[in-house]
Design a protein around this nucleic acid. Structure first.
Lengths: 138, 138
DNA sequence: TACAGTTTTGCAATGATGTTGCAAATTTTA
DNA sequence: TAAAATTTGCAACATCATTGCAAAACTGTA
């Protein structure tokens, strides 16, 4: 497993460092999306806050993770399942946030539907977040 | 106009104060959704930062405004067009964020479509944000 | 494996963003 | 208009995020 993670970094032309390996492993084992704060808690205090910020940013730029919008000032990040091109993401799936356990889950198989916009609006990217009860809490 | 605003406060059983009137007016004249920071800048420095936080929170609880999720840690607020019941919002419309001018616009007439969730997931509320070019920037 | 060049990390300093308690001011109610 | 209730502003504080820079780690090459 640790090897897979290492390969993923190499494939994306990134230096292989302890911090990056550790954070990536966290994502692989996480039950859902992770916020900066989650990582800070879980990633044994060896990793500096600043490094986490920079790592998340780099991962996002490389298309390894994507952000999930939220209405409470707490952006979360999740692995991109299907390979995302650098800079151009294809995380076109719906995200689910459980009101009970708080987990944020990527519903990789549920695609964001198209909507008809008013005249003059040109869509580039869509995001959809559904709140409710997840399969474990129901 | 100022009278309408005053009535809206009364109808929602809120004290009518200068800060609230001023902030509400801002929303009525704003081209799009407003973030806390926007209000702080526009609302002549008479109003304290803390008051803005508290006012926004109260407005949201009363259903006068609703929050719009974003992927960059910057929640925005917009007026609820159709009356929202206290605590229970009906802002079931799509939000549009222009990549060019940055404005966040409520597309009141475009409803968030339903999606079919995997077994075991029970939806309560949906949010959809579309990025692209708005009718003015295109 | 060692070395030079490049990238990444950690620290410190700083700035922006939110929150809380409490007294003073304002608004509402009677 | 006076008393009661609500709201505001200030101060202090906690959290979150960004930047510059020197030290440390990593990469490719010999």
């Amino acid at each position: 497993m640790s090897e897979d993670v290492r390969d993923l970094l190499k494939k994306n032309h990134m230096s292989v460092t302890d911090s990056r390996l550790q954070i990536l492993e966290l994502f692989y084992h996480a039950p859902g999306a992770l916020a900066h704060a989650d990582i800070e808690k879980k990633a044994s205090d060896k990793i500096d806050r600043v490094t986490i910020y920079r790592t998340l940013q780099t991962f996002e730029e490389k298309g390894i993770i994507h952000t999930i919008p939220s209405a409470d000032n707490s952006v979360k990040y999740a692995l991109c399942k299907h390979e995302c091109a650098e800079g151009h993401h294809h995380d076109n799936h719906v995200h689910f946030v459980c009101d009970e356990c708080g987990k944020t889950i990527c519903l990789d198989d549920v695609l964001v539907p198209d909507v008809k916009l008013p005249k003059g609006f040109e869509p580039h990217q869509s995001n959809m977040v559904v709140n409710g009860l997840c399969n474990e809490c129901k």
